[in-house]
């Protein structure tokens, strides 16, 4: 599934422009030290964490997009770093569990 399709089907709100690429997988974590050992390239990362170090970690493992749950939005400097790194940022009002169920229903694992 492409990111644009996920945006439409899951009701994500985009916070940045994004490269509309195939989603290679999904990883859920709120710890940046965990992201560098667990997240995969071209996947999406689901998190509550809005700190800048999240983008530094996501960029290192070449995550395609980050989805902030519970309607969270990062600060402007975080958005700017993500734009520079080409990482799409999205937000959704549901909690992590509900969004994970939605991803599973859509066949993204």
């Amino acid at each position: 599934m492409k990111i644009s399709e996920l945006v439409e089907k899951a009701g994500l709100r985009s916070l940045t422009d994004y490269k509309d690429q195939e989603i290679a997988g999904v990883y859920i974590s709120d710890m940046v030290s965990d992201i560098i050992t667990g997240a995969k390239a071209d996947g999406i990362l689901v998190t509550l964490q809005t700190h800048k170090s999240l983008i530094a970690a996501a960029n290192l493992v070449d995550v395609a997009a980050v989805v902030f749950v519970r309607g969270k939005k990062p600060a402007d400097d975080v958005v700017q770093l993500a734009k520079k790194a080409g990482i799409g940022l999205f937000t959704i009002d549901t909690d992590t569990w509900s969004f994970a169920k939605k991803l599973n229903e859509l066949g993204i694992k």
């Binding site: 983008i55 530094a56 290192l60």
Partner: peptide, 8 residues
């Protein structure tokens, strides 16, 4: 930007 979970 240090990749660390400070304050968690």
């Amino acid at each position: 930007i240090v990749i660390a979970d400070t304050g968690l």
